[in-house]
Amino acid sequence: RMRTAFTSTQLLELEREFSSNMYLSRLRRIEIATYLNLSEKQVKIWFQNRRVKHKK
């Protein structure tokens, strides 16, 4: 599987969303994925990984 290289714009938006809410509803995940031109799965995994990073 290929590793996703997020653009700086995508990362900025993902981080902004994360700062306001660490957990996404499915609807919000779809909205963000569509807006950032990513798959729902990519957004889901990014949030999972970001939560782990946040815990450390």
Results as ranks from 00 to 15, higher is better:
residue 16 R to K: 12
residue 47 F to D: 01
residue 10 Q to T: 07
residue 7 T to Y: 05
residue 11 L to T: 09
residue 22 M to E: 14
residue 40 E to I: 05
residue 4 T to V: 13
residue 8 S to L: 11
residue 53 K to D: 13
residue 47 F to Q: 00
residue 43 V to Q: 00
residue 4 T to P: 12
residue 15 E to N: 02
residue 22 M to C: 13
residue 48 Q to H: 09
residue 54 H to P: 08
residue 55 K to S: 12
residue 11 L to P: 00
residue 4 T to A: 12
residue 9 T to A: 14
residue 46 W to Y: 09
residue 48 Q to M: 07
residue 51 R to V: 13
residue 38 L to S: 05
residue 39 S to I: 02
residue 5 A to F: 12
residue 3 R to G: 14
residue 52 V to G: 14
residue 14 L to W: 00
residue 43 V to S: 01
residue 55 K to D: 12
residue 53 K to R: 11
residue 29 R to T: 08
residue 37 N to L: 05
residue 21 N to R: 01
residue 25 S to N: 15
residue 51 R to N: 09
residue 4 T to S: 13
residue 2 M to Y: 12
residue 24 L to V: 07
residue 11 L to E: 15
residue 52 V to T: 10
residue 49 N to F: 10
residue 26 R to D: 15
residue 3 R to P: 13
residue 18 F to D: 03
residue 44 K to D: 14
residue 31 E to F: 02
residue 38 L to Q: 02
residue 36 L to F: 03
residue 2 M to G: 11
residue 22 M to T: 10
residue 41 K to C: 15
residue 46 W to F: 08
residue 12 L to N: 13
residue 10 Q to V: 08
residue 10 Q to G: 03
residue 18 F to E: 00
residue 35 Y to H: 06
residue 25 S to F: 03
residue 27 L to E: 08
residue 47 F to C: 04
residue 36 L to Q: 00
residue 38 L to E: 04
residue 19 S to T: 13
residue 32 I to S: 02
residue 39 S to E: 12
residue 22 M to K: 08
residue 24 L to P: 08
residue 34 T to W: 01
residue 32 I to F: 00
residue 6 F to A: 06
residue 38 L to R: 02
residue 15 E to W: 01
residue 18 F to R: 00
residue 31 E to R: 03
residue 34 T to S: 07
residue 45 I to T: 12
residue 13 E to S: 06
residue 52 V to H: 11
residue 7 T to K: 07
residue 5 A to V: 11
residue 15 E to L: 04
residue 32 I to V: 06
residue 24 L to D: 07
residue 45 I to G: 12
residue 25 S to I: 00
residue 22 M to R: 07
residue 33 A to K: 04
residue 25 S to Q: 00
residue 30 I to N: 06
residue 25 S to Y: 00
residue 51 R to I: 14
residue 25 S to V: 07
residue 22 M to I: 07
residue 17 E to W: 01
residue 20 S to W: 11
residue 55 K to M: 12
residue 12 L to R: 10
residue 13 E to N: 07
residue 51 R to Q: 10
residue 53 K to C: 11
residue 19 S to N: 13
residue 12 L to H: 12
residue 31 E to M: 01
residue 33 A to D: 02
residue 47 F to W: 15
residue 41 K to T: 14
residue 36 L to Y: 05
residue 19 S to G: 10
residue 43 V to C: 02
residue 3 R to Q: 12
residue 30 I to Y: 04
residue 20 S to T: 13
residue 24 L to G: 02
residue 50 R to Y: 05
residue 42 Q to H: 07
residue 51 R to A: 14
residue 32 I to D: 00
residue 8 S to K: 10
residue 15 E to T: 02
residue 32 I to M: 05
residue 49 N to D: 10
residue 3 R to C: 14
residue 2 M to D: 14
residue 38 L to H: 01
residue 52 V to Y: 13
residue 34 T to V: 06
residue 43 V to F: 03
residue 28 R to Q: 02
residue 28 R to C: 04
residue 35 Y to F: 13
residue 18 F to V: 02
residue 47 F to P: 02
residue 20 S to E: 14
residue 43 V to I: 08
residue 42 Q to E: 14
residue 22 M to A: 11
residue 6 F to L: 14
residue 14 L to M: 07
residue 54 H to W: 10
residue 33 A to Y: 00
residue 44 K to S: 14
residue 23 Y to S: 09
residue 19 S to Y: 05
residue 33 A to N: 00
residue 50 R to E: 13
residue 51 R to H: 10
residue 7 T to Q: 04
residue 23 Y to F: 08
residue 21 N to E: 05
residue 30 I to G: 05
residue 3 R to K: 14
residue 10 Q to K: 05
residue 27 L to F: 15
residue 51 R to C: 09
residue 37 N to H: 14
residue 53 K to H: 13
residue 21 N to F: 03
residue 52 V to K: 14
residue 17 E to A: 07
residue 5 A to K: 08
residue 36 L to M: 07
residue 17 E to M: 00
residue 46 W to K: 05
residue 37 N to Q: 12
residue 23 Y to A: 07
residue 7 T to F: 01
residue 35 Y to S: 11
residue 30 I to P: 05
residue 37 N to E: 08
residue 37 N to C: 09
residue 16 R to W: 05
residue 16 R to N: 10
residue 4 T to W: 09
residue 28 R to D: 02
residue 17 E to P: 04
residue 29 R to N: 09
residue 32 I to N: 02
residue 45 I to L: 14
residue 33 A to H: 04
residue 27 L to G: 07
residue 2 M to E: 14
residue 15 E to R: 01
residue 36 L to R: 03
residue 11 L to Y: 02
residue 6 F to G: 03
residue 8 S to E: 14
residue 28 R to F: 01
residue 43 V to K: 00
residue 9 T to L: 11
residue 19 S to W: 06
residue 12 L to Y: 12
residue 34 T to H: 06
residue 53 K to E: 15
residue 33 A to F: 01
residue 15 E to S: 02
residue 21 N to H: 02
residue 21 N to T: 03
residue 54 H to V: 07
residue 24 L to F: 01
residue 21 N to P: 00
residue 23 Y to H: 12
residue 45 I to H: 12
residue 35 Y to A: 12
